[in-house]
């Protein structure tokens, strides 16, 4: 396991946002975190990515306990987070965005030739088919942007990628494209934590599934322990869905 939590928890004042959650991700594996809104998914990723410090349990990176006080610290340990809004500037070109904040330098200047070349190579290595690295990011599709953000995190030394709902704003086809790049990152040996509320996206890709509900864990399952139907059922809160369909039936 590159990254692991043991009985981790976090409260904000009197509100317990997360309680006793244990999960882990290994190199070359995908761990999916599933749950409805308010289940504690975002609290969990904020702990993993260093935005919040946990106040119960243990957080381990490479088997050693850590307590991150900033996203920068997490990044230095190779834990990179790609948020939904991606932190990209629409009017700037792909290569300028790729290196934003970490521009390669040659003497005093920004090594533009190298930035262009590396951005192009890295995107290609991830199998990302960008027409032209000079085009503004704003002209890319949502899926392409997501993919560029993933490639950027990989290039800057991520060993674990935390992806926050990467497919939620995308159409079916674009979501497929992004899932393919996530698989590509996994095949390159990265550990991936995929946060989603879509079991259809999670099941084919995931090796391990953590289900959250109301801030607590409903359990972590290996792929062999659970079927897609069971996963979907647990996600939707099985009994609740039965009740809902009963309510919605024509009188």
């Amino acid at each position: 396991m590159i990254l692991q939590t043991r009985g981790i928890g976090k409260s904000f004042g009197s509100v317990v946002a997360l309680r006793d959650v244990s999960m882990g991700v290994a190199a070359g594996e995908v761990t999916c975190v599933l749950g409805d809104n308010g289940a504690g998914k975002s609290t969990l990723i904020k702990i993993l990515s260093g935005v919040h410090a946990h106040d119960a349990g243990a957080y381990l990176v490479d088997g050693a306990e850590v307590r991150f006080s900033s996203p920068r610290e997490a990044l230095d340990r190779g834990v990179a987070t790609v948020y939904q809004d991606l932190a990209m500037i629409p009017l700037m070109s792909v290569w300028r965005n790729f290196f934003l904040g970490s521009e390669p330098r040659r003497r005093l200047a920004f090594d533009v030739a190298r930035a262009r070349r590396v951005a192009r190579e890295e995107l290609r290595a991830m199998g990302i088919d960008i027409r032209d690295v000079d085009q503004p990011v704003g002209t890319l599709s949502g899926g392409e942007r997501q993919s560029v953000a993933i490639a950027r995190a990989v290039y800057f030394g991520a060993r674990v990628l935390i992806l926050d709902e990467p497919t939620s704003a995308l159409g079916v086809k674009q979501a497929g494209v992004v899932l393919r790049y996530i698989a590509r990152a996994r095949d390159r040996g990265l550990g991936v934590v995929l946060i989603t509320h879509n079991p259809h996206h999670a099941y084919p890709l995931g090796d391990r599934f953590l289900l959250l509900n109301r801030g607590t864990s409903l359990g972590e399952y290996g792929k062999s322990d659970i079927t897609k139907e069971e996963l979907t059922g647990l996600m939707a809160g099985g009994a609740e869905l039965d009740e809902l369909s009963h309510e919605l039936r024509r009188p």
Partner: peptide, 16 residues
């Protein structure tokens, strides 16, 4: 690069 970034989207620029 930073000038373009802070003018384009200051919040995203800070995040990077």
């Amino acid at each position: 690069n930073w000038i373009f970034a802070v003018g384009g989207d200051e919040r995203a620029a800070r995040a990077m």
